[in-house]
Design a protein around this nucleic acid. Structure first.
Length: 679
RNA sequence: GGCGAGGUAGCUCAGUCGGUUAGAGCAGUGGAAUCAUAAUCCACGUGUCGGGGGUUCGAAUCCCUCCCUCGCUACCA
C-alpha cells in the first residue's frame, strides 16, 4: 500500500480561447490518467489546475469585441471548465488567477525578491497615452519609420525595413487606443536575474534527471537554454490588466504574466484548502520534502517549468524560512496535430473539446488520444483512426467480450457468478495473467509511458477473448456445465480487472461495468486478485460502446477547412471613396526568380499600366518561378513602394489561400489585356 | 536564412548508451469457430530502418554530408 504524497499540476490554460484536442493530449489527459491511477493506488495525491487570466492578448480580445477583459476571462474560464468536466478531468480544483488569493501570492513572491535586493531596476523611455492614461505596449503604438518612411512602424522597430531605433526617433507616433499622439515618458521595470541561478539550475536539472529520468526532449530543451546563457527577464509591464506591482509609485504596472502564472499552481492549492479545517494544508504539499511534485505540460511550456519556475522557487527559498519544493519531473509532451496539420482555428482546422463531445461520447475520445499520445514526437489525430479505435478495439474487442460473457452468465447461470469447478491449465494461466496486468500497467504509468500502458490494458481484453475462444463454453455448456461455469467465472473476473485497470483512461465506461458487475473499484494492488464470490448477483448488461458509422466520420472530414462564416464577415466596412483609392490593374508576369536567402519571397517583373515594374511577392513556397511567367494577374498598382530583403517592391499581387493553406494567385480572364483597370 | 524536432511495413507508432533472423496495433490475405455489438481465434511481413560516405569484426543505432517534413523565428506590400 502506498502512502506517497504527490502534487500534480497541469499547465494553466490561457483563458482567451477554447480547449482543443491538442491541449488535452499535451498536458491534461496524461496527467489525469496518472492521477486517477495514483488515487487507486492509495497515494495521497492532489491535482491542481486553473485558468491563466492575465496578459495582453486578453485585453486585445476585449478591445476587439468592445467588452471588458473580465468578460473575456469569465466566458473562457466557464467554457473551459465545462469542457474539462465533460472530458472527465478529475482536478481537485480548477481555480483562476484573477482570484485575490492569487494576486496576494504573486505579490508576496515579488515583494520577497524585491526585499532581497534581487530584482534589477532598469529605466527606459516608453510611449504613454495621456488620454487613456496608460503606457502603451509596443503593439499599441504606430508611427512613421524614421529610416524608410513606412507609416505603420512599431515603436522601436520597423517591420518594413527591419530598422531598430529608439522610440523617441519614431515620427508622428499614434496610440491605437485613443488615436492621440502619445508622449514619451520614462518608466522603469524590474528584471529577474535568471543568470545568477544558472549554475544551480543546471545542477537541479542534472540531479533530477539522474534520479527521476527526465524525458530526452525536455533535457535537450534545457541544454539549449543553458548553452545560450540565461539572461535577465523583465517581471513587470505597463498594463492595466493583471496583478498590480506591490510597491509605491508603481501605478499602472503589473507583474508580467510569465512571472505570476506559474505561481497560480500555488495559489490554486491555497484556494483548495481555503474552506477546509486545515487551512494551511496546502503547505503539506508544497513545502514538505517528502512530497513528490510533478508538472505536466506541453512542450511550449518547457522553459517555464524547468528553468524559470524553479529559479523563482530557489529565490524564494533563499530569503524565507518556509521552503518550497521543486518539481521532480516535468514530463512534457510534444504536440498533437490534426489530420496531418497543425490545429488552426482561423483555417477551420481541428475541433475543440466542447464541440467534439457534442458529437461523440467522452471515453472513445479519451481512449483514442491516450493510445496515441505525443510522448516522443508529434503525433496526429485522424478521424478514421478515431473511428477504428472505437469500433474495432473498444466495441469489438473490449465491449463484445464483456457482452458475450454477460449473456452467458444470464442465460445459463441465472445472472449470478457461478461456482467454479476444477481448474485446468488454461484456467490457471488466465488467472495468473489477470494478476500480472495491474502491476505491469501501473509500472508503465509511473514511468509516464501512458501509451504503452493503454496498449497493455487492451491486451488484457484480447487475452480474455482468446481464453473464451479456447475454452469453448458454448460447447461445455451442453456437455460439462461445471467447466462452463469455471470459464464464465474467470471471464467475469477478467472483466472486473478490466474495469479496474481501464478506469484511469475510460472512467465513465469503467463505472458502467462496475454497475453491471454490481461491484466497485478497489485498491489497485488488489485489482487482479479481488474475487467475485459465487452467487454474487449481476445486473443487466448494457452495450458499452456503440459503433460509429462511416457517415458520421465523413461528415466531420468534409467539414475540415471550412471557416465559419461569421469570422469571414467580421471586418469593418469601408466607403466607396476609400475603395476607389485603390488602383487595381491587370498585369502579366514577365520574369520571376527566387530571392536568395529568403524562404518566402519571389522577385517578379510584371508589365502593367505605365510599363514594367518589380514586385516582391511572398509566394515562393507556393509557386515555382517559371510557372508564373506569362500568367495574367491582378496587382495593386498605386501601393507605396517598400523594400523587402533589400529589394524594392512596387505594388502587390493579389492571391488567396485555399483550404490547404496554399496561396493561389488570382488570375483574370485570358482575354484581358495587361494594364486594364479592375472595376 | 537561424534555432529545435523528426524521416523505421499500406496507415499510426515502438525500438536506437552498436551485436544473434528489425517490432506492435490497425488495414490486407487464407483458415477455424458460431456464445456474442457480422463480434472472436489462428496463420501469413523480400520493410534499400530518407540518400551517400566513414568508423567497426559488426550500424536502423556512432561520425560526416546531402535531401525531405514539421514547429518557432526573420523576410509575408
Amino acid at each position: 500500500m502506498s502512502h506517497e504524497k504527490i502534487l500534480v499540476t497541469s499547465a494553466l490554460p490561457y483563458a482567451n480561447g477554447p480547449i482543443h484536442l491538442g491541449h488535452l493530449s499535451g498536458a491534461y489527459l496524461p496527467a489525469d490518467i496518472f492521477v486517477r491511477y495514483h488515487r487507486l493506488k492509495g497515494s495521497n495525491i492532489i491535482y491542481i489546475c486553473g485558468s491563466d487570466e492575465h496578459g495582453v492578448p486578453i485585453t486585445i480580445t476585449a478591445d476587439n469585441e468592445g467588452i471588458k477583459p473580465q468578460d473575456v476571462i469569465d466566458r473562457f474560464h466557464e467554457a473551459n471548465k465545462n469542457s474539462f468536466d465533460k472530458f472527465g478531468m478529475s482536478f481537485d480544483i480548477y481555480s483562476r488567477t484573477s482570484l485575490p488569493v492569487h494576486h496576494n501570492t504573486a505579490q508576496t513572491f515579488f515583494k520577497s525578491f524585491h526585499d532581497q535586493g534581487l530584482l534589477v531596476e532598469k529605466k527606459s523611455l516608453q510611449f504613454f497615452d495621456e488620454k487613456a492614461k496608460m503606457f502603451l505596449p509596443d503593439r499599441y503604438v504606430e508611427g512613421t519609420c524614421p529610416k524608410c518612411g513606412f507609416e505603420e512602424a512599431r515603436s522601436d522597430e520597423c517591420e518594413n525595413c527591419g530598422a531598430l531605433y529608439d522610440p523617441s526617433e519614431l515620427v508622428n507616433p499614434k496610440s491605437k487606443i485613443s488615436g492621440e499622439s502619445p508622449i514619451l515618458k520614462e518608466t522603469s521595470h524590474w528584471y529577474f536575474p535568471l543568470g545568477k541561478f544558472q549554475e544551480r539550475l543546471e545542477k537541479f536539472v542534472d540531479d533530477s534527471n539522474s534520479k527521476f529520468n527526465w524525458k530526452e526532449n525536455v533535457l535537450q530543451y534545457c541544454r539549449g537554454w543553458f548553452k545560450d546563457g540565461l539572461k535577465d527577464r523583465a517581471v513587470t509591464r505597463d498594463l492595466d490588466w493583471g496583478v498590480k506591482v506591490p510597491l509605491d509609485d508603481a501605478d499602472g504596472k503589473v507583474l508580467y504574466v510569465w512571472f505570476e502564472a506559474v505561481l497560480g499552481y500555488i495559489s490554486a492549492t491555497k484556494e483548495l484548502f481555503k474552506n477546509k479545517e486545515n487551512e494551511n494544508g496546502w503547505k503539506e504539499y508544497w513545502q514538505d520534502k517528502d512530497t513528490r511534485y510533478i508538472a505536466f505540460i506541453g512542450k511550449d511550456n518547457t522553459v517555464f517549468h524547468t528553468i524559470i519556475f524553479p529559479a523563482m522557487l530557489m529565490a524564494w527559498n533563499d530569503g524565507n524560512d518556509d521552503k518550497y519544493l521543486l518539481p521532480e519531473n516535468v514530463p512534457a509532451n510534444e504536440f498533437l496535430n490534426f489530420e496531418g496539420k497543425k490545429f488552426s482555428k482561423s483555417r477551420g482546422w481541428g475541433i475543440d473539446v466542447a464541440e467534439f463531445l457534442e458529437l461523440f461520447p467522452t471515453d472513445p475520445l479519451r481512449y483514442t488520444l491516450a493510445s496515441n499520445l505525443p510522448e516522443n514526437k508529434d503525433t496526429d489525430f485522424y478521424w478514421k483512426e478515431f473511428q477504428a479505435k472505437n469500433n474495432s478495439e473498444l466495441a469489438d474487442i473490449f465491449g463484445n467480450f464483456v457482452n458475450r460473457t454477460f449473456i452467458f452468465a444470464h442465460k445459463h447461470f441465472e445472472g449470478k457468478v457461478p461456482e467454479t469447478g476444477e481448474l485446468g491449465e488454461i484456467d490457471k494461466a488466465m488467472l495468473e495473467s489477470i494478476k500480472e496486468y495491474p502491476s505491469k500497467i501501473g509500472g508503465l504509468i509511473e514511468k509516464y509511458k501512458i501509451r504503452d500502458a493503454v496498449f497493455e490494458m487492451m491486451n488484457l481484453a484480447r487475452d480474455g477473448n482468446k481464453y473464451f475462444n479456447d475454452s469453448e463454453p458454448w460447447k461445455s455448456v451442453k456437455q460439462d456445465k461445471l467447466k462452463c461455469a469455471t470459464t464464465i467465472k474467470i471471464c467475469l473476473q477478467t472483466i472486473n480487472t478490466l474495469a479496474e485497470v481501464f478506469s484511469p483512461v475510460i472512467p465513465f465506461s469503467s463505472e458502467k461495468i462496475f454497475k453491471m458487475l454490481n461491484s466497485e473499484l478497489c485498491r489497485w494492488a488488489d485489482s487482479g486478485t479481488s474475487i467475485l464470490k459465487p452467487g454474487h448477483e449481476l445486473n443487466e448488461a448494457e452495450i458499452l460502446f456503440t459503433k460509429i458509422e462511416d457517415e458520421a466520420i465523413e461528415a466531420q472530414i468534409n467539414k475540415l477547412g471550412k471557416v465559419e462564416e461569421e469570422q469571414v464577415y467580421d471586418v469593418p466596412e469601408i466607403s466607396f471613396e476609400e475603395f476607389s483609392k485603390v488602383d487595381l490593374r491587370t498585369a502579366v508576369v514577365e520574369e520571376a526568380e527566387k530571392i536568395k536567402k529568403s524562404k518566402k519571397l519571389l522577385k517578379l517583373k510584371v508589365r502593367t499600366a505605365g510599363g514594367t515594374r518589380q514586385i516582391i511577392a511572398g509566394i515562393a513556397e507556393h509557386y515555382i518561378p517559371e510557372d508564373l511567367i506569362g500568367k495574367k494577374v491582378i496587382v495593386v498598382a498605386n501601393l507605396k513602394p517598400a523594400k523587402l530583403m533589400g529589394e524594392e517592391s512596387q505594388g502587390m499581387m493579389l492571391a488567396v489561400e485555399n483550404s490547404d493553406g496554399k496561396l493561389k494567385v488570382i488570375e483574370p480572364d485570358k482575354s484581358v489585356n495587361p494594364g486594364t483597370k479592375v472595376r
